[in-house]
Structures are given as structure tokens and as C-alpha cells.
Write a protein that binds this DNA or RNA. Structure first.
Lengths: 219, 219
DNA sequence: TGACCGTACGTACGGTGTACGTAGACGGGA
DNA sequence: TCCCGTCTACGTACACCGTACGTACGGTCA
């Protein structure tokens, strides 16, 4: 309350985004929220873009990566993916800000560092580990954007538009699948793809000589 | 040149986005591009949001879905995924607009219709087909956002920031993988994940006891 | 005391989307 | 021919945006 600082500004921004949406934030709005003049913000933040970087860092710092090195690598991958998805639950309206900003800061790179470590320990090396990492990031980012309503679901993402009435002649498959398309359990969807990816990774490892079904522990 | 219409406005918007980036577009800028008053645009487009919907539709209409029903389903999936990725090549700076707008129009739903048809013919039914569709969309969206520089690559996405110097003590894995992280062949990355997903889908089908010839191809 | 410096703040500029009112072109009865 | 309704183009105006700039105040040290 007494003096302004960067942390307070960022916290106010996150709070405002979660309350009123990412479109609602402006330097004036944040300043008003803090009961402070607009230009006072610029003593602690160089510009709006940097403030949004701060928002992304704050959200990323909030996720808990409880990595258990003794667990099987498949479970470690699942846990890390779920930890990242937690963002969409805890900060749904900030999610777009988080994923659309490439951070060169510690908070921004820790998830990648952890993921890469896990992939290496699982047995992926060099270029293949990086490819696995990038594929996972792509899947998770895409899933999060669906979950927070940026990307289409073909389900009533939010109750603003009820449901597009599709022409059965033009879209027979979409109509046939309408009952399944009308619902979107985000956790179940995420877990489905996650499991598919983990299995695919296990197969990829198994091709190299490990047993296929029961991936042996290589402790 | 003679009279204004929606198609011309949308075309000008796409053109402007590709030339100067999505941040550069504004109603005034588009009007100036067309040599027309700002408010004249509103005779043909209700608001800016609808115009962006038009941009997304125009880009989506531009992709060619050459579906060959006689091909193996794995190949059909690959072809459709690549057709969608073509957006990032043909309209890189419009890509974010395309994927962040959920369209209830024909152009917006055709890709999903085709994909769902392919998945059904491959043998996925009901809820599982929808889950496969959504997982594929998530992966493709995530890949496209990486490709157009929205989402982090950990490679020099564009030569504005040279390369973040990472602390080897904090990020040993990122440093160890720096040579592999420094490059990002978007086509290769996309194909890697695509192949993994297709194989995972084939395994999922195979687990159900389908005949061997449907088990999919290998790399 | 004076110099210095960081913080808070007001004002101002050029930009944004768009509501509203106006003016002209066009076409169809009377 | 005149009149009238409809459609299109356009200018103006409003509220808002990010932020460059100048100023005023409080504390710290010479």
C-alpha cells in the first residue's frame, strides 16, 4: 500500500486479467486499480509488453513442479504435463498471455529445463529429445488454448453462442458426431492425448531394444 | 475499384496483415489501403471482430484439401495435417488470427468435417473419434503457433533477440542441448510429431484386434 | 544549506473502434 | 416530372489506448 513496486503492479495485472479478461487490461485500468497515477507505473515497468512478460512469469512461477526422480519416466512426464495444464485452471484468462510470450527469464525456461531432463533420463538423446520436447509443448499449448476457449472445440465453449446449427448435407460427420462433439471434458481430453503421446514415446524407446509392453525400469 | 464490398475489404485486411503484421491492422489503415473513408467499411462489415472472422475464413478457404479416399487412412491423415500446416507457410502472420477465432461458418468447419470423416473411416467411432480429432487439432495448433513465432522455440525465432545466454548452473539440460535447440526446422519438427501421432493411432486401432495390414506404416 | 536523485503525477500527442448524422445516387410509383 | 425510400460513402465526435515529456516533492549525502 505504501510504495509501488513491480511485484504489486504485476499482481494487480494478473488479478485484473482474471477478473475482467485480457482485453480489459490497460495501463490506466491497472493504475486505477492500485489507486495510483498512470505514469507512476512506468517507474517500475518499462512498457506494457514488459508488464505482460511479468504476468507470464508470475503465472509460470505459480505452478508447482513436484518432480519425483525416482518415479518411472512415463509418470514424470504425465506429472509435468498436468502441472503445466494447471495454469489453465488457476489462471484461465491469463493462459493466452503465458503461452504467447517467449520468456528468456528463469521462470520461463524452468519448465523446459525440467522436461528436457526427464526426456534425457528416459533415454532420448540429442536431437530426438528436443523434438519430443517441442512436440509435447505443441500439444500442451494447443490443449490449453482449447480449454480456455481461444481455439475451437465444436462444443459450446461458453454459453454466449448456443450452438451453431450445422447443415447435415454439408457436414454429415459433424452432425453424426454431434452428441460427442457437444461435450468437452477438458481433463479427459487432455489425459487422452497425453496417454497417447506417452505410449508413442514408449514405443519409440522400445524400438531401440527395450521390451515393448512393460517398459523396464532402467534405474 | 468501383464499389466496395466485403470480399475486397477482407482481401485488403489479409494483404495488410501479411505485409505489416497483425498488430498493424486497424479500420483506418484498411480504409486508407482501399482509398476509402473509415466508416464506409461499416456498410459491409458489422465490426472489426467480424472482419477478422472474414480474414480467418478467407485463409481457411485458401487451403487445398485434396483428399484421396482410396489412400490408406494414415496417409490421408498426414495429407490433411500438412494441408492445414500450409497456412503457416502461405499466411504466416494471419495464422494467429485463424486459429484464435472459432468459426461457425462453412469454411471454418470443413477441415473438421474432413478430419472426422477420415478418422471414422480409419475405424475410430463415437467419442474416440472426437478425442482423436481434438488431439490432432491441439497438436497442429501448437505446432503452427511455434512456427509463426508466437510460442517459444528456444531457438532464435526471429533475429531480433540474438539468443538468451543461459546460466549453465541453472539450466544444465538446456545448455547441453543448445546445439539441437538452436535450430528449428519447422517441417521436420512437424513431421516428427505427426508421425508419432499417426503411429500411436495405428497402435490404438491395432490393440482392438484389427487385421495386420491396417497396422499402419513405419518410418 | 545545497545538490542530487528517485518516485509520483498531470498534461498532451497520436492512435484506436465505432455511434451518429448527413449527403448523394439510384430506382420505383404517382 | 416529382417525390420518396433505400443504400452507400463520408465527416465528426467520443471514449479509450500507450507513452513521451515536464514538473513537483521527499529523502540522502556533501
Amino acid at each position: 500500500m505504501s510504495t509501488l513496486n513491480r511485484a504489486k503492479i504485476v499482481a494487480a495485472a494478473v488479478d485484473l486479467i482474471e477478473r475482467e479478461g485480457a482485453d480489459a487490461i490497460s495501463m490506466r485500468r491497472i493504475a486505477a486499480e492500485l489507486g495510483v497515477g498512470v505514469m507512476s507505473l512506468y517507474n517500475h515497468v518499462p512498457n506494457k509488453s514488459a508488464l505482460l512478460d511479468g504476468v507470464a512469469e508470475a503465472v509460470l512461477s505459480g505452478i508447482e513442479f513436484t518432480d519425483d526422480p525416482s518415479a518411472h519416466w512415463t509418470e514424470r512426464v504425465r506429472i509435468q504435463a498436468r502441472a503445466f495444464r494447471q495454469i489453465a485452471h488457476d489462471y484461465p484468462r491469463s493462459t493466452m498471455v503465458v503461452v504467447s510470450r517467449q520468456l528468456h527469464s528463469t521462470a520461463g525456461m524452468i519448465p523446459a529445463e525440467r522436461a528436457l531432463a526427464t526426456l534425457r533420463e528416459a533415454g532420448f538423446k540429442g536431437e530426438e529429445a528436443v523434438r519430443m520436447l517441442r512436440m509435447f509443448i505443441a500439444y500442451i499449448v494447443g490443449s490449453l488454448l482449447r480449454e480456455v476457449g481461444v481455439t475451437p472445440t465444436f462444443a459450446p465453449v461458453r454459453p454466449d453462442v448456443p450452438m451453431p446449427d450445422v447443415d447435415p448435407a454439408l457436414f454429415p460427420e459433424l452432425c453424426a458426431g454431434a452428441p460427442d462433439l457437444a461435450v468437452c471434458d477438458h481433463e479427459a481430453e487432455f489425459e487422452f492425448g497425453l496417454e497417447l503421446l506417452v505410449q508413442a514415446m514408449a514405443v519409440r524407446l522400445g524400438e531401440r531394444g527395450l521390451t515393448g509392453h512393460e517398459r523396464g525400469l532402467e534405474t
